[in-house]
Structure formats: structure tokens, C-alpha cells
């Protein structure tokens, strides 16, 4: 067992918490699911905010969970350099809470989309992407209705120049096109970093493409393991 204990924050309506625990466990990363009202355990050395539909997506996806007391603890640990990863609804919570820039809102299609996507690694110099090289194309599944990344043009310029774009939706050969953009995200952005490179949110699901048996049977592959190795 690795020394790191990852706390997976469960809200009412989280539904990828057990998947995240299983995926991290398969990588020999110690992880436990934490009910948000119980607060973070003292031994927390990493945090995953999992996917789901916290608070029924009321008001806006992630809006309620982002303002729950445990997020103050998450923000404090994030500022201390503890790695934090928000996935899908966790990404919406992360952006709503101000951990990361921009917002995730209704897909361009106005539909819930569940499919495999290709992602180009834009910055390989982070814990979440150190398993990859810059420009490498990986494949992960998405499953969301509100994954369209929106950000003011001025702030987009800022995060691009600060190298805070983590992944962009792309074709299998790495070309970034509008067709490869499943939800209409600004600049095809699929994942971004917070103020530190140890804080990241992304709409695709690494925990659904980590286990060998599942990845092989549903075509998801195991690229997600590279993202979750941030917690090793």
C-alpha cells in the first residue's frame, strides 16, 4: 500500500465514488470514501471529487456541493499542495467553488452524451499527466449533459499562456477540430488546472478507463490509470 490516502468526497447524488475507489485501489493507491458532512480525515494526502449528480444538479450542476462546508477544507488543502482531482460532476463542483477557472454548462447538443473521446495532452508537466507526453493522444469516456467549458476570452488567453489547459478534445490523430468537440467546449478544453498544477478538473472519466478487465471489455482502454497515478 502506498502511504498516500486519497479521500473521495461523497455528496448526496455522487455516483462515481465507488468506481474511483476501485480504480485507485487497482493501482495500489489507498483510498477511502468520505461523506461530505463528516469532513476530511486528517490523513488526507489526496482528494478526488467524483462524478454524479450532487444535489440533483439543482440550480446548476455542482453549484450546491461547491458551497458545502467540506469544500472549505478541500480549498485549504489544495492551497497546501495536496493533489485534488475533480471528475465530471466533480469538475463542475471544482469550477463552481473557484478551485479552477471557467464554468461547465449545458452541452451544445442539449443532450446527455455518453461516448469515448480522444484527448490531447496539452501539459504533461503535472501530476495528472506525467504518465504521458505533451501532444500525446489518450482515450477516455465522457458521460455528461453539462460539460461545455465556458470562459471569458481574456481568461482563456491567461490560462493558455499559463499552461493551465490540461486536455483538449481532439481527433484520433491529435488534430483539434470542432467535430471532435463533443459538447461545444470553448477551445475544445476538456480539463484545466487550478492555480497550482496539483489541482485539476476534467469532464472525462479516468476511473472508468483504469481497470484492465473493464477497459478491455468496453473499449475504454486504461489511459485513465495515467491520470490517477497523480496520487501515487
Amino acid at each position: 500500500m502506498a502511504a498516500v490516502t486519497v479521500s473521495i468526497v461523497r455528496f448526496g447524488g455522487s455516483n462515481c465514488d465507488r468506481d474511483a475507489a476501485l480504480a485507485l485501489g487497482s493501482l495500489d493507491i489507498d483510498a477511502e470514501i468520505v461523506w461530505h458532512e463528516d469532513g476530511l480525515p486528517e490523513a488526507t494526502d489526496g482528494i478526488v471529487i467524483p462524478g454524479g449528480f450532487s444535489y440533483g444538479d439543482y440550480l446548476r450542476a455542482g453549484a450546491m456541493a461547491a458551497r458545502s462546508p467540506i469544500m472549505d477544507e478541500v480549498r485549504a488543502l489544495a492551497e497546501d499542495g495536496v493533489p485534488v482531482l475533480g471528475v465530471c460532476n466533480g469538475a463542475q463542483i471544482g469550477s463552481e467553488s473557484g478551485l479552477t477557472p471557467g464554468a461547465f454548462t449545458t452541452n451544445r447538443s442539449a443532450r446527455f452524451q455518453c461516448e469515448h473521446v480522444h484527448l490531447r495532452v496539452e501539459n504533461a508537466d503535472t501530476p495528472f499527466t506525467s504518465a504521458f507526453t505533451e501532444g500525446e493522444v489518450i482515450s477516455l469516456p465522457i458521460a455528461h449533459g453539462e460539460g461545455r467549458f465556458e470562459i471569458e476570452p481574456r481568461k482563456l488567453d491567461a490560462i493558455r499562456s499559463d499552461d493551465r489547459v490540461l486536455f483538449r478534445y481532439c481527433e484520433a490523430d491529435g488534430t483539434v477540430t470542432d467535430v471532435a468537440n463533443p459538447n461545444g467546449s470553448t477551445d475544445n478544453v476538456a480539463g484545466v488546472l487550478g492555480e497550482r498544477e496539483t489541482v485539476a478538473v476534467l469532464m472525462p472519466h479516468p476511473e472508468r478507463a483504469t481497470l484492465d478487465d473493464i477497459g478491455a471489455s468496453n473499449g475504454a482502454g486504461t489511459d485513465g490509470a495515467g491520470v490517477l497515478r497523480a496520487f501515487e
Binding site: 453549484a63 458551497r67 454548462t105
Partner: peptide
Amino acid sequence: ERLLANPTI
């Protein structure tokens, strides 16, 4: 400012 609107959008 704090909840009902998201200033990004």
C-alpha cells in the same frame, strides 16, 4: 454574487 448566478456565464 455568491450563489444564484455564475459570473463566468
